[in-house]
Amino acid sequence: GLMCLEHEDEKVNMYCVTDDQLICALCKLVGRHRDHQVAALSE
């Protein structure tokens, strides 16, 4: 899978609806997407 741009060791596994961007779990937990609307990726 694709790796996160901000956290190079994390794979992107969710999608930020607010930013129209693929993000990883760390982005959602501690990153700038924590208050955004996110959706899980169905692979």
Rank of each mutant, 00 (worst) to 15 (best):
D20G: 08
I23C: 08
K11Q: 13
A39V: 11
K11H: 14
Y15G: 10
Y15A: 11
L22N: 15
K28L: 06
L41M: 12
R34H: 14
Q21D: 08
H7D: 01
V17H: 15
I23H: 04
H7T: 02
C27M: 00
N13Y: 07
T18M: 03
M3P: 04
A40H: 07
C16V: 01
C16P: 04
N13M: 05
Y15T: 04
E10D: 06
A40F: 12
A40Y: 02
V12A: 06
C27L: 00
C24R: 00
H7L: 00
K11W: 04
D19R: 01
A39F: 02
C24H: 00
R34I: 10
C27T: 02
A25I: 04
V38K: 05
A39G: 12
C24F: 15
D19M: 00
M14Q: 14
A39D: 12
D9R: 11
C24G: 00
V30I: 07
R32Q: 10
V12R: 11
A25S: 12
Q37W: 01
K11N: 11
M3I: 12
D35G: 08
T18P: 02
L29M: 12
Y15K: 15
K28H: 12
E8R: 13
C27D: 04
C16T: 03
L41T: 13
H36T: 01
M3H: 13
K28P: 10
D20L: 03
D9M: 14
A39H: 09
T18Q: 08
D35W: 03
E8M: 14
C16Q: 05
V38P: 05
T18C: 05
D9A: 03
I23W: 03
L22R: 15
E8W: 03
L29T: 14
M3R: 08
L5T: 09
E10G: 04
R34E: 12
H33R: 01
S42W: 03
C27H: 02
C27A: 01
D9L: 12
Q37C: 04
C24T: 01
V38D: 07
H33K: 03
C24S: 00
E8D: 06
C4R: 01
Y15R: 14
G1Y: 06
C27P: 06
K28R: 13
L26A: 12
L2V: 14
A39S: 12
D9C: 13
H33A: 01
D19Q: 02
N13A: 07
N13T: 09
M3C: 05
M3L: 09
E8I: 07
C24A: 00
E10A: 07
N13V: 03
H33P: 02
Y15V: 10
H36M: 00
E10M: 09
C4P: 00
Q37T: 09
A40P: 14
R32S: 12
A39C: 10
Q37D: 13
L5Y: 09
Q37F: 03
D35N: 07
L29E: 14
H7K: 01
C4D: 03
A25D: 08
C27Q: 00
L2F: 04
D20N: 11
E8Y: 05
M14C: 13
N13W: 03
V17K: 15
L2W: 03
V30M: 09
L2Y: 13
H33L: 00
L22A: 15
V17F: 06
C24I: 00
L41V: 09
C24W: 00
V30C: 07
V17Q: 15
T18H: 05
V12Q: 15
C4G: 01
C24K: 00
E6C: 02
V38W: 10
C16R: 02
